[in-house]
């Protein structure tokens, strides 16, 4: 384990040195990342100029909703910084046979493939998310209880773990399909469901979709549960969702490991 931590920190340091070598590019990446986030925030402000809340009686009025958005920003910043750059490189590695050189190294292939490259510019969004969270919580009529603050970071870790599991399963699909340029698109589209409160998925089509995205692909738990813990009282149902999120995180990581190993077993080298 210590060896892996050491290698992980070496990778992180190398990526940071690389980012700092091209400082202007790094700054531009931070700015464009912040631009995308600002655009979304402007869109939400526009929506709240038409409505007092999102979903009748849902409780997601402006400040709680911005706490929700902030939570999403923090979780996505962690995932985009740590895992996404490596996963998006996998497509070409499979197609060109570059994966072979990873498989012959005396290290765990999943570790190497999912954590060898970092994108520190994505952390900019996380920092803004943190600021937005503090502003939103200060605007709440009542401060969240201590237990909510204790649970919040743990649920953030669970959210990251669920998304990590999803990335690894998409990476496994890349290995099986030979090429999966849609990996990043699929990631964007599927996480799109988690960008809004689960309460918007209501009605004859919304209810089954909500169940699917809660129990089958638990994408709706990723942001909804940590944000809900802070923004709303912890009732009986909310505790159930907290337990479910912990379970979903464990299952996602475990299942993704099994699927990834199975995909590697079926890998056919593309190199000569």
């Amino acid at each position: 384990m210590r060896r892996y931590i050491k290698i992980f920190s070496t990778f992180a340091r190398a990526c940071l040195v690389r980012d700092m070598t091209f400082r202007v590019n790094f700054l531009l990446e931070c700015l464009t990342s912040l631009g995308w986030m600002s655009m979304n925030l402007a869109f939400y402000l526009l929506i709240f100029s038409f409505t007092p809340e999102i979903g009748r009686g849902s409780g997601w009025s402006r400040e709680p909703f911005f706490a929700f958005v902030a939570t999403g920003l923090i979780i996505n910043a962690i995932v985009q910084t740590l895992f996404m750059p490596s996963a998006s490189e996998l497509t070409e590695m499979v197609r060109t046979g570059g994966l072979d050189s990873v498989l012959v190294r005396p290290l765990d292939a999943q570790f190497l493939l999912s954590m060898h490259r970092f994108d520190f510019s994505s952390m900019a969004n996380g920092l803004v998310g943190l600021g937005l969270l503090i502003w939103s919580v200060l605007c709440f009529p009542a401060a969240p209880p201590l237990i909510a603050w204790l649970l919040y970071p743990l649920l953030i870790v669970c959210g990251v773990a669920i998304l990590y599991g999803l990335i690894i399963m998409l990476a496994a699909a890349t290995i099986l399909m030979g090429r999966n340029q849609s990996l990043y698109d699929f990631w964007f589209y599927i996480t799109n469901f988690s960008r809004y409160p689960a309460e918007i998925y209501a009605g004859p089509w919304g209810d089954p979709l909500r169940s699917f995205c809660t129990f089958i692909i638990p994408i709706l738990l990723v942001v909804n549960v940590p944000a809900g813990t802070l923004a709303r009282p912890l009732s009986g149902e909310a505790w159930g969702m907290v337990v479910l999120t912990f379970a979903a995180a464990g299952i996602s990581v475990g299942l993704s490991r099994v699927v990834f190993q199975a995909a590697l077993a079926r890998y056919r080298s593309a190199s000569s």
């Binding site: 929506i47 409505t51 999102i54 589209y189 599927i190 799109n192 469901f193 809004y196 209501a202 979709l209």
Partner: peptide, 19 residues
């Protein structure tokens, strides 16, 4: 997959109009 974001938009705007 390109159809997936439209699903979110339908539910989002339905929720906005409802509220």
């Amino acid at each position: 997959m390109r159809f997936l974001p439209i699903v979110t938009q339908v539910f989002l705007w339905t929720a906005v109009f409802a509220a």
